[in-house]
């Protein structure tokens, strides 16, 4: 699996993502600047890391969704390529229309930085195969706008088609609809989630709860 990491101005967790991918993949992912108009040949997985692309000005992810690289990302997804968006990356994917719904301000209107517990809703995907279904794992969250929302019909469809990837299992601190922390595209090849598995892949840093995400991708 050849992974690339997109870099939009204001993104700040790209180094964290490099470390996590490198550890599981054994190779260092290439960083692709947002002003490029094509992905490197042979790209299997496009990762949109966390941060504050364009300062989160206007709306989180709104401007990055219109960056020059995004048509190539959409074409990649249309071809069935893998895409992973974490935190701001998730927000960009919803703004770009690659995933449904939107991430609103946290219900308490404050930035939230703490570990949360996530429940793995299904493990028959390329992103989650190293977990067992229903597994609970820990991941740091760090966001001001992680309150997942969509209209009732969309939420019903996500649940009906089994496209919820992760739900908050301890507390729904940001107020997300139906405790949704992450969702898949209908073909299960695009994943967006708010918490940061990439920040928990090393026992020294508090655990390896997030490592199965990257091990799953590495095994695909």
């Amino acid at each position: 699996m050849k992974a690339v990491i997109l870099l939009f101005p204001g993104i700040n967790r790209e180094r964290d993502m490099v470390l996590a991918v490198r550890q599981s993949f054994g190779t260092t992912p290439q960083i692709v600047w947002h002003k490029e108009t094509s992905l490197p040949p042979g790209t299997d997985l496009v990762i949109l890391p966390g941060g504050f692309s364009f300062g989160d000005y206007l709306r989180c992810g709104a401007m990055a969704a219109h960056s020059p690289i995004m048509p190539a990302v959409k074409a990649h997804a249309d071809r069935g390529g893998y895409v992973l968006g974490v935190c701001n990356g998730f927000q960009i994917l919803t703004e770009a229309g690659l995933l449904p719904g939107a991430l609103l301000r946290n219900a308490g209107l404050r930035f939230l930085s703490m570990d949360t517990l996530l429940k793995v809703e299904r493990s028959d995907t390329v992103f989650t195969s190293k977990w067992t279904p229903g597994a609970i794992f820990r991941a740091p969250m760090a966001h001001g706008d992680g309150n997942y929302n969509a209209d009732e019909a969309t939420l019903n469809r996500l649940e009906g088609e089994n496209l919820v990837a992760f739900r908050y299992a301890d507390a729904n601190r940001n107020g997300s609809a139906r405790s949704i922390a992450g969702i898949f595209s209908p073909n299960l090849r695009v994943l967006g989630l708010m918490p940061h598995p990439e920040n928990l892949v090393d026992p020294l840093l508090g655990g390896i709860d997030g490592k199965p995400l990257f091990d799953s991708l590495a095994a695909a």
Binding site: N12, R15, D16, R110, F111, S113, M114, A142, L204, L205
Partner: peptide, 28 residues
Amino acid sequence: IFDQYDSTVGGQTVKRPAQADAAIVRLE
């Protein structure tokens, strides 16, 4: 207070707030 500060970005924070007498940040 510290729940409003991102203490993990960078992927090197070994001891976060309230985990030790001093914060521990690993060098890349």
